[in-house]
Amino acid sequence: MPEAVIVDAVRTPVGRRGGALAKWHPVDLLGHTLRYLVERSGIRPDDIEDVIAGCAMQHEHQSGNLGRHAVLSAGLPESVPAVTLDRQCGSGQQAVSFAAQAIMAGSMDVVIACGVESMSQTPLPNAFQPGAALGPQYAPLELARYDGGLLAQGASSELMNTRFELSREALDGYSIRSHRRALAATDAGRFREQLVPITTDPLDPTSPAVDRDEGIRRELDPAKMAALRAVFAEDGATTAGNSSQISDGAAALLITSEEYAAAHGLRPRARLRALAVAADDPIIQFTAVLPATRKALKQAGLEIDDIDLFEVNEAFAGVPLMFQKTFGVPDDKLNVNGGSVAIGHPLGSTGARMLTDLLHELERSGGRYGLQTICEASGTANATIIERV
């Protein structure tokens, strides 16, 4: 079976909702990222066989196969096709899986996997709430099956906190750590190599440059964090401070066959060793990262102790804490440069952003294996294992 390898990976800085990237239309934001990836990698644009774009909220500015429009706005050849997929928060990670699977199947040699979300330009709609997609025939069956229907993710986070005995103090402490680690990584220049050069105004190249993730806080008062009101339950533990941020951003990875890379003088940076997806309790919603991880480890023939770095999406601080509690992962292997609590969570791009971060950090630290997993609305999750070349 052909090997799928990552040749290059880039991402925009992550902007806060209404912040530094708010003027960028999502098509332009992704197109700008695609153009930079192609130019930086030196790939022949005519060789690109598909562009697979993740996007979670496909309405308003993000409707109508925005991946194809991003290809055209990037100035890539008309012959380059594109498709847009939705696996909620894992959309960008699923794009990588589909790209790698096409290459492993022998049907393609060059695919770009990417993701984008402009949560400034495409706000959360009513359609994003649980149950909105239910049809009249089967909706009553699902509602009966789950005692009135599914929950919003915030309410589910409180169920997770209770089941895994995650205290408010633990959630807040983890969130402060996420900001501190992301800030340390930024100050040390660890993200610099992966960031797409971009300005605040897409129509004015002389406008201020955006060269860092906007949501990371330099000063964070633990007392103020502890004083924040629980959002989803009167006696709950989930707050705005220990949840992911609403954000804008894009990311893209160039995936090729090992043979193509060798024939065209490209340097593979990592192999895709495992591509897993799993589903679990749709009420709690976040626990599928556990069976997804077990599936990925089994695919790769690895044990949890073989993994050098873990990236677990911080949809809520409780998710990586649940993961850590279940698998016994040490602090110095888990989200070492912070995560979505600090950096932000532009839904469709986060999986591609995290994998970009993971690749660069494996190279920086000299690690061999990295595992990434993301929980997704209604109880699914992706898990991916990469091996640094």
Rank of each mutant, 00 (worst) to 15 (best):
M1G: 12
E3A: 12
V5I: 03
V7C: 00
V7S: 06
T12R: 02
V14A: 08
G15W: 01
G18V: 13
G18Q: 11
G19M: 11
L21D: 04
A22K: 06
H25N: 14
P26W: 04
L29Q: 06
T33A: 09
R35N: 14
V38H: 10
R40K: 13
R40Y: 00
G42S: 13
I43Q: 14
R44A: 15
D47S: 12
V51L: 09
I52H: 15
M57A: 10
Q62D: 07
H69A: 13
A74N: 11
S79K: 15
V83M: 14
T84E: 06
R87P: 03
V96T: 08
S97N: 10
A100T: 00
A102V: 05
M104R: 15
I112W: 00
V116R: 00
S120Q: 11
Q121T: 03
T122C: 10
P125N: 08
G131D: 12
A132L: 07
G135E: 07
G135P: 08
P136Q: 11
P136M: 04
Q137D: 09
Q137K: 09
Y138I: 03
L141Y: 13
D147V: 09
G154C: 10
G154F: 05
G154A: 05
S156A: 15
E158S: 10
R168T: 00
A170V: 13
G173I: 02
R180K: 11
L183Q: 05
F191Q: 06
E193H: 06
L195A: 11
V196A: 03
T199W: 03
D201R: 11
T206F: 04
D211K: 06
D211R: 08
D213R: 00
G215L: 06
L220D: 09
D221P: 12
D235W: 02
S243H: 11
S243F: 03
Q245H: 13
D248W: 08
G249V: 00
S257Y: 00
A261R: 10
G265W: 02
L266P: 03
R269M: 00
A274M: 02
L275C: 07
A276M: 08
V277T: 12
V277S: 15
V277D: 15
A278V: 02
A278I: 01
A279N: 12
D280S: 14
P282S: 14
Q285T: 09
F286D: 03
V289W: 04
L290P: 03
A292D: 08
A296M: 05
A300Y: 05
L302I: 01
I304R: 04
D305N: 13
E311P: 04
E314Q: 12
P320H: 01
M322V: 02
V329I: 15
P330F: 10
D332G: 06
S340P: 04
S340W: 04
A342Q: 03
I343D: 10
G344Y: 13
G344E: 02
H345Q: 13
T350F: 05
G351S: 01
G351K: 03
R353V: 01
M354Y: 09
M354F: 12
T356E: 00
L359C: 00
H360K: 00
E363Q: 10
G370H: 04
L371W: 07
E376G: 05
T380W: 11
N382S: 14
N382L: 07
E387C: 08
R388Y: 02
